[in-house]
Amino acid sequence: MNIFRLAGDMTHLASVLVLLLKIHTIKSCAGVSLRTQELYAIVFATRYLDIFTSFVSVYNTFMKLVFLGSSFSIVWYMRYHKAVHRTYDREQDTFRHWFLVLPCLVLALLIHEKFTFLEVLWTFSLYLEAVAILPQLVLLQRTRNIDNLTGQYIFLLGGYRGLYILNWIYRYFTEPHFVHWITWIAGLVQTLLYADFFYYYFLRFIGGRGVE
């Protein structure tokens, strides 16, 4: 564990807590894409299949349970909770996210480190996570302005993988044979997809107005 990875995990944890806070306290999911949340639930479900077979550390297992629990409960809230469900703008959140799942699965079957069930699904989760934010970014453009909590959620979610990139650079120089091209490229693509969001998000800080 290094400071970059810890900062990345804490940033990721903060992003799900901000979203849960928004949905649970103000009972609203306005501006939040259910499709992105569903993709993230699939990402965690396919990435953490090893939670019962391989034990890394208490921290690792605890964080996996937190990410699994929070992503599925957010989907539950947005789909079935009577008050929250009403604030979900279904008409705007129309990105065909299932069209993202199949190509990622095919790509994972073609490009992976080992051809085993767990490894292919793990690789699938990497590819899917890289594009999982797309429905949310499209929704953001459609709804124009967004509230602070949603903006902070996206900012933290985008930032965590960027911190992971620093972690991979650090591990590459400190651990022999630490080379995982698939993880690195997927993580880079994921972070680059946030580039324009970061641009407008920082403009907000400079201009002191809502995220346009």
Binding site: H12, D50, T53, S54, F55, V56, S57, N60, K64, L118
Partner: peptide, 10 residues
């Protein structure tokens, strides 16, 4: 016995 053989990152 939980054998560590997978990934150590989240």
């Amino acid at each position: 016995i939980w054998v560590y053989e997978f990934k150590d990152e989240l």
